[in-house]
């Protein structure tokens, strides 16, 4: 059986909030290393890969592989009843037809308990190849969100160009064009303001802004975001959480002239 206790419900609330507009029905695959989710959006352009490591829970117990088939809209309805600071416990049997959730207020004067019906979801897993990306950019997640939102007002697509002089986000729309160039920032006092660019070769790729703006809903999960880019392969946008947990989004590029 699964028993997983989170000190603060907000972690799960934020993760589900960040992905529920991209994917609807998906399995939470539980085993002794944690809770994983992999799902594509309906148009097969983006892929979500979530890993909530056992270390992010206290305690975490799951002695078998358990697939918890969830509708994220339904899960959101239940999670709305949890306060951010509530202690959240997930429980499920080995072959579950429901997921038990309890929310305990931090001063322990209220316990809410819900059982959510599960679904049988036949989900195909995709093999994601290990990639040595040509460019890895680490930046404040709020900055990335602002760039994507600003450029989406002008265009459907953004071209991300990483070179030795920095990283450029450029778009071309009906009303004109725009670009934002970022250079390396080293803020010793406030490391979360850093912009780090690791480059092995220059890259330039075009992506749909609609999806990038959607990924930015994960901004609350982490103060920084990492973009991993190589020519001709999907972009990886990664939000890291405490305990080695992460939320990753892969986005297929737009290719051609």
């Amino acid at each position: 059986m699964l028993e997983a206790r989170l000190e603060q419900a907000q972690l799960l609330k934020k993760v589900v909030d960040a992905i529920k507009d991209l994917v609807q029905d998906c399995n939470f695959d539980c085993n002794d290393s944690g809770i994983a989710l992999q799902a594509m959006d309906n148009s097969h352009v983006a892929l979500v890969s979530m890993m909530l490591k056992a270390e992010s829970f206290n305690p975490f117990r799951c002695d078998r592989n358990i697939a918890i088939g969830l509708n994220l809209v339904s899960l959101t309805k239940v999670l709305r009843a949890a306060q951010n600071e509530d202690i959240l416990t997930l429980k499920a049997e080995d072959a579950p037809d429901s997921l038990n959730l309890t929310f305990e207020s931090s001063d322990k004067d209220r316990i809410s308990e819900y059982d959510l019906k599960l679904m049988d979801i036949d989900q195909e897993h995709l093999g994601i190849p290990d990639t040595d990306y040509s460019a890895t950019i680490s930046m404040p997640s709020a900055e990335f969100k602002r760039i994507c939102t600003d450029l989406m007002a002008m265009s459907e697509s953004v071209t991300i160009e990483a070179g030795k002089d920095g990283i450029k986000f450029a778009c071309n729309g009906d009303i004109g064009n725009g670009s934002i160039t970022l250079r390396t920032v080293q803020d010793v006092e406030n490391k979360e303001n850093n912009i780090e660019i690791a480059l092995t070769e220059p890259v330039s790729l075009t992506f749909s802004l609609k999806y990038l703006v959607n990924f930015c809903k994960a901004q609350n999960l982490s103060k920084t975001v990492k973009l991993h880019i190589s020519n001709e392969v999907p972009l990886l946008v990664e939000y890291a959480m405490e305990g080695g947990s992460y939320l990753r989004f892969y986005l297929a590029p737009k290719i051609g002239d």
Partner: peptide, 14 residues
Amino acid sequence: SKQQQSILGFFSKG
């Protein structure tokens, strides 16, 4: 113009 690729063109099934 540029064509949106599918993620399935890059990641293998199974």
